[in-house]
Design a protein around this nucleic acid. Structure first.
Lengths: 142, 142
DNA sequence: ATCATTATTGATAAATGTTGTCAACTATGA
DNA sequence: TCATAGTTGACAACATTTATCAATAATGAT
């Protein structure tokens, strides 16, 4: 229920090529890493894990940004306030982050439109979008 | 309606002293800066603005962290994804950030409990808290 | 008001984190 | 198979954040 389904290699290649980017072994390795753990990783962790495979840190930075732009990576915050990246699917969604195991799951169908209307009427603010992270305990850690 | 009321000097001093911290001219200068602009500042901006007053960057870092711990500073994200700090009042609240003027206003009475219950029933996730930022257009920029 | 205590300051260095450069390499579409 | 053009990794350059420490100054007690 939590881990997202593995992304077919062909689909990932297609996503890269669509925007003129190339599908390289290094980029696939980075993506596979994120796919392997729903808790996600910080940039430092990714470079550390992939260093033995001789993947340079510049490549890690570039790949993470590319995956972000494609919508396959979203960020959440540690309790320490640090960025952590998590595999996801393109499109808007919210993240539920477990306080204990750090696992992050997407919550895409949670509607905030009611709240946005309330805000509009109370403050005159025309809400166009939002970033929302929940933290708490996942079913396994409860 | 947007800018928060100026914080009395005595109250700020009290807040610092309460936790064993001291109320110094440097710390007051940092706070006054944040109080002066509801759009907030990045750390780099604060150090740049206060450099002529001979306030070291280490002091800026320390003071911002202290103000954060006291609850008087909250962070929001730029469109570029960067941290920006904004003056606020202690306690939980959400931030409304204007896309044009970057002004940030607090929205403390927006209830997410309904949404949290919905999430709990749908995912089994026990929500304990959240971080929520809205972006859009403030009344003046609409 | 004075004083001793002890947190704070600024300068500097050290440590991290991020981006730029470029020749060699390789994925891609023709 | 081939030419094109994006990609790689090593390294340098740059930016950001933290640690150190002697001198200074805010605080509570007197």
């Amino acid at each position: 229920m939590n881990t997202i389904d593995a992304l077919p290699k062909a689909e990932l290649r297609q996503q890269f090529n669509k925007t003129g980017l190339r599908f390289t072994p290094q980029r696939e390795a980075v993506w596979r890493l994120f796919e392997s753990d729903p808790a996600g990783f910080t940039i430092a962790q990714v470079t550390a894990v992939l260093a033995p495979q001789k993947i340079g840190q510049a490549t890690v930075y570039r790949t993470i940004r590319a995956l972000q732009d494609l919508g396959y990576l979203k960020w959440v915050h540690d309790r320490s306030g640090e960025h952590r990246f998590v595999a996801s699917r393109p499109g808007h969604s919210h993240m539920l982050v477990c306080r204990l195991c750090s696992k992050a799951v997407e919550c895409s169908d949670c509607d905030l439109s009611v709240l946005e209307k309330l805000i509009a009427s109370q403050t005159g603010f025309a809400v166009e979008g939002h970033h929302l992270e929940f933290f708490g305990l996942c079913p396994e850690c409860s």
